[in-house]
């Protein structure tokens, strides 16, 4: 073998590696993924390559999906719960273009689910991987913008300032004010941002059968919630964490209640509601029996006693 010119050493210009990432990038992502699983909730730094998708548009999740995907994979991509969202469609198109994987809208058929801002309503199974796109992996950002100091606080399990923020909210407003990305304690050790999923979805991470990988492309951190791992939203014992109150909302297409809804302002000043999980809605509309859901038709969560009845401080 002789490499007498630089050109002979270079790869042909149009030749992309399988799943776009070169072998080094893929291996590095895989090594970091194993570390993340072994240290639940710990933010593992990684190199985070630039992809042909705008940075901040799911490139972290996309890198993890590309490190996992194979031609036999079945991929579901959602944004805000919808398979048909333009951003979800674009990411799905890129994954299949680079890997030849099949796609699906059925949460239960997918081997890899990449999502921005939602976890599907149907209970995911063992050996499924949920990849959540993360804009800001640092739950301490609001109380400590210096990332080195925040890293030290995680090392010391020093979460006092997080509790103080919650306490201040209770004093001022008699309730917690954190909307999505509700900070949660993983395996009793690390506080994570569960990514900007609504509070409705946060309990779904607790003692789940599936693997959840969370990845931030811009911020170059990835972390994991392994299967069957404790995940508890931060809450004081006498003021429980609450999911969004949508008890009276009914999907205008399916009549379904007790699932996460999109609220749609109507011209007459009222509001309409529709299921946020488009794959789930598709099954109901088609008359296909959906799988068991995390919240049943009465709104009860499938881990008995995990969600406590709401209480507000006087």
């Amino acid at each position: 073998m002789s490499h007498s010119t630089l050109a002979a050493l270079a790869t042909p210009r149009a030749d992309y590696s399988y799943a776009f990432l070169d072998a080094f990038a893929r291996r590095e992502l895989r090594r970091r993924t194993l570390k993340a699983i072994a240290i639940p909730g710990y933010q593992v730094p990684y190199a985070s390559r630039e992809l042909p998708i705008a940075r901040g548009w799911g490139t972290g999740g996309l890198q993890v999906s590309l490190a996992l995907v194979g031609p036999q994979s079945v991929v579901k991509v959602i944004d805000q719960g919808a398979d048909d969202s333009v951003n979800a469609a674009n990411l799905r198109r890129f994954i299949t273009r680079m890997s030849g994987a099949a796609t699906t809208t059925d949460a239960l058929q997918a081997t890899i689910l990449q999502s921005r801002h939602r976890i599907p309503e149907e209970i995911l199974r063992e050996y499924q991987t949920l990849v959540l796109q993360v804009p800001d992996p640092e739950p301490l950002r609001a109380v400590q913008s210096d990332s080195s100091r925040a890293h030290q606080m995680h090392a010391d399990a020093d979460y006092g300032q997080m509790w103080l923020v919650l306490y201040e909210q209770l004093v001022r407003y008699r309730q917690y004010l954190q909307g999505a990305s509700y900070p949660s304690l993983v395996n009793g050790r690390y506080v994570i941002s569960p990514s900007p999923i609504p509070r409705w979805d946060t309990p779904k991470l607790h003692q789940a059968a599936h693997l959840t990988l969370l990845a931030a492309g811009r911020e170059k951190r990835l972390y994991a919630v392994p299967p069957y791992t404790d995940v508890y939203p931060l809450e004081f014992t006498d003021v429980p964490f609450q999911v969004e109150d949508q008890r009276d909302w009914r999907c205008r297409h399916t009549g379904v209640q007790h699932k996460f809804m999109n609220e749609l302002p109507l011209a007459d000043g009222s509001a309409g509601y529709e299921l946020s999980d488009s794959g789930y809605q598709q099954k109901i509309t088609a008359g296909t029996a959906p799988g068991a859901t995390y919240y049943d038709d009465q709104g009860n969560f499938y881990h008995d006693g995990y969600l406590k009845p709401p209480v507000r401080p006087e």
Partner: peptide
């Protein structure tokens, strides 16, 4: 459109990685 080639080496490395990932996920 054809996707980039899934080489035997990549197939082997991916299968190995997935075995390790699931072994670590379900100790």
């Amino acid at each position: 459109m054809t996707h980039p080639a899934f080489t035997p080496a990549e197939a082997r490395q991916r299968d190995t990685f997935l075995a390790l990932m699931w072994a670590l996920s379900y100790p």
